[in-house]
Design a protein around this nucleic acid. Structure first.
Lengths: 110, 110
DNA sequence: TTACTTAATCGTAATATTGCAATGTAACGA
DNA sequence: TCGTTACATTGCAATATTACGATTAAGTAA
């Protein structure tokens, strides 16, 4: 149905999946990496940098913004997009906790 | 078009996005967590544990298998699914590297 | 063999995602 | 005001994802 049955899962599981979607597309990975590198950014840069159409970039930016991972401040004609560091760190902790679950488990199978 | 333009991005960017899809759905998050907890598993357990239909679980397992994150060994009538630890660690390093890019960047904006 | 169990696969429906052209909007400069 | 620039939004097409019933395949048990 294309619709995840979120009610079957814990809040933490849904949240991990939710954040994972942020970087489950190479364009968003590239956008986030570029924002970290530049540390101050406008969308125009990104269109040149990434090579997708302006409308497409804008759409990816909106998704990242909805997740809270980036902030966009209007500055005259352009918009300054930046990483929302506090949210990034929150997300990082959540994902890292998920990825590190292997360290506590003894190898017992396969 | 529903089709990511992978040719625009680096191998690393595509790979991060690719692995991120593994846990971009709460059912797969739950499956991976359960496999870590049980450390030896058959699909029947997962159907009871998660609450999705058998066909759906099987489909998620196949995706995880295609990514190399789990292994499935046939044992008579059932199949023993396990985490592929070496692949998991490889994935963890890649994602962690992406998530840790904030530590090297001075706060300079917003 | 027959019946049963387990899980993969097929087929299909509903919904989501990706991408872009076209258009809208808001700020700026002349 | 008019034109330009910088993005956002809309509308649409193509493809992907999620979910499940039905079926199939392969083992086990009688």
């Amino acid at each position: 149905m294309g619709l995840a049955k979120t009610e079957l899962f814990t809040d933490a599981q849904n949240e991990i999946a939710f954040f994972a979607k942020a970087f489950a597309h190479p364009a968003r990975v590239a956008i986030l990496q570029h924002l970290f590198k530049i540390n101050t950014c406008v969308c125009g840069d990104l269109v040149n940098e990434i090579g997708l159409a302006q409308a497409t970039i804008s759409q990816h930016l909106r998704e990242l913004k909805q997740l809270g991972l980036i902030k966009g401040d209007v500055e005259g004609t352009s918009v300054c997009y930046c990483i929302n560091k506090s949210k990034w760190i929150e997300m990082k902790k959540l994902i890292a906790g998920f990825l590190d679950q292997d360290i506590s488990v003894p190898t017992n199978c396969c």
